[in-house]
Structures are given as structure tokens and as C-alpha cells.
Computed example of a mutant assay.
Amino acid sequence: MTEFDRLSLPAIEVKDLSFAWKSGKVALDDCSLSVPRGEFWMLLGTNGSGKSTLLRSIAGLLTPQAGTIEIQGGLGIVFQNPDCQLVMPTVGADIAFGLVAENLTPSQVRHRVTEALNAVNLGELIRRPIYALSGGQKQRVAIAGAIARQIEVILFDEPTALLDPDAQLDLVAQVRELVKSRGLTALWVTHRLEELDYCDGAFLIENGRLVDRGDPQRMRQRLMREIEV
């Protein structure tokens, strides 16, 4: 496959995915979706609909019983609770830790860390202890870690769930800007309808199956009608 062919493919392609827990409960039922390269898409659904199971399957954290998943480029994930993935004592050290496997020179590591923090507007906090950060800042550090590793596709598992309303919208706006300015692809799980203002498109999952996709405002209207019923 040539580089041109690779770039023409969707960043995420999921086909006929099925997953059941050991109890026998089906979480994904012949589920398929495609996320265009360089776009910001959201995955919607009620609690228990299968959206987090789908995201974790794409991330490789769960192994589906059937179906295929294809990712074009490096893949990273940002969890609901950033404390689950920030492991070093300071901001700069945490991002540098993610680069250990790349055998970079100290100068290259410093450049990657600085550039990634500047991308999320946290350059001045490189020496800040992780414990002294706000929830929104911690999520930005997690995103910076993916940028430093030159990740092309980032999954977000309800990253605003633990943030206050202002921090929620600041984070989703930051991700939209990164997608547009850096050519990243993002798939973001949420149940907050106001976040749909920032994405290019949305998927709706019910009972483990994809039931709708497309314009985020049309999706918002559909969900609001369902809530009113």
C-alpha cells in the first residue's frame, strides 16, 4: 500500500464487531463504524449502550469475539479519570516517560515534551507536580503525552465526566483545535449534548448496535425528542 492509499483510508474502520461478557450479556452486536481521517467524531449512547465497550475494543483493551478493527496511524487513549494514566511526579517527567521506548536523545525528548505542552497551552507548567494540577489540566497533560508520541488517532472515554462545566467546554474546544491544526483524528465518547457543537459528526449506539450517524445537530435533535417522549 502506498502512502497515498493509506491517507485515503478512514482513520478508524470497525466492521461487524461483536463482544459478549463472560456472563453471556451481549455488549456489541454486529457493530460497524468508520471515522474519517482528520475529523472529530463523537460516540453517543445511554449507559449500557456499548459505547465504552466499543471504544475500549478499538483501543485494544478488550478482545471482541468477531469482527475487524483497522487503525491508520498510531493510537492513543485518554480515560475518564486522568489519574489512571499519569504516573510520574511532574508534568514534564510524565510526558518524557512515554517516550522511553523510542530511544531518543535527551535533546529530542526535551523538544518533544516542550512542543507537546505548548500545543495544549501548558508550556509554563513543565515542572509542575501532577498533584497540583486541576482536573482539566491533567486531561491536557494526557493529551500532550499522545502528541509527544506523535499519535495520529486519539480515543477519548468521557474525558469531561469529572470536570466542572467551564473546564468541560474548554477541553472539548481544545481537542477540536488540535484536530484542525494538527490533522489528528479523534473519537470522543460522551452523553453531554452541548459537546456536539464542537464535532464534525456523531454516532449513536443502542443495545450494542450503531443506529444512526451523521450531522451532530441532527443527532442532538433526535436525542432531545427521545428525552421528551
Rank of each mutant, 00 (worst) to 15 (best):
G183D: 06
A167V: 08
Q150H: 03
T185S: 02
P165E: 11
G145D: 00
T114C: 06
L184T: 02
M224G: 05
A96I: 01
F19P: 00
D212E: 15
V179T: 02
G45D: 02
A116I: 08
G73D: 04
M88K: 06
R140W: 12
R218H: 10
K25M: 14
S181L: 02
G214C: 12
A59M: 01
A173D: 11
E158H: 04
R213M: 04
L122S: 11
R128C: 08
R220T: 03
F19H: 12
Q174F: 00
R128G: 02
W21Y: 15
A186Q: 07
A144P: 05
T53N: 11
A148L: 02
Y198H: 13
A66N: 09
L28Q: 13
L196Q: 09
R213D: 01
D166T: 15
V189Y: 03
I95L: 01
V100K: 15
E70K: 15
D29A: 13
W41M: 01
V113Y: 08
V141S: 09
E194D: 14
P106N: 13
E194K: 14
D170G: 12
D5V: 12
G92H: 04
Q168W: 05
Q139W: 09
E3Y: 06
V35Q: 06
Q221L: 12
A202E: 00
F203W: 05
T68F: 07
V26P: 08
E177F: 03
A119S: 15
R182L: 13
F156D: 01
E194S: 08
G98I: 00
I154L: 11
H111C: 09
S181E: 13
T185C: 07
Q65R: 14
L61K: 08
W41R: 10
M1S: 13
I77W: 00
P129F: 07
G74D: 12
V172T: 12
K51Y: 06
L193C: 07
L43P: 01
G24E: 12
V91G: 07
T185H: 04
R110Q: 15
L193T: 01
I126M: 12
Q72H: 08
S181Y: 04
M219L: 13
L196I: 10
A66H: 11
L133C: 10
S23L: 09
L86P: 02
E115S: 15
R128K: 14
A132Y: 08
G145I: 02
A167C: 04
R209V: 05
V141Y: 03
I58Y: 03
E177N: 00
I151R: 00
F156Y: 01
R128Q: 11
H111P: 03
D29I: 14
R110C: 08
R140N: 10
R220Y: 05
Y131R: 14
Q168H: 13
G67V: 04
E124Q: 15
M224D: 03
S32I: 09
G60I: 10
P64V: 11
A148N: 00
G76H: 04
T185N: 04
L43D: 04
L104W: 15
S34M: 15
N118E: 15
P216K: 06
A202Y: 06
Q150A: 06
N47Q: 06
T185V: 06
S8E: 11
A20F: 14
D215V: 11
Q85G: 00
L133K: 09
S18A: 12
S107W: 12
S57W: 09
K51H: 12
D212Q: 14
D30W: 03
M42W: 02
M219E: 02
I58D: 05
G76A: 07
G48K: 05
E226M: 14
T160I: 08
A59N: 05
P159V: 00
M88L: 14
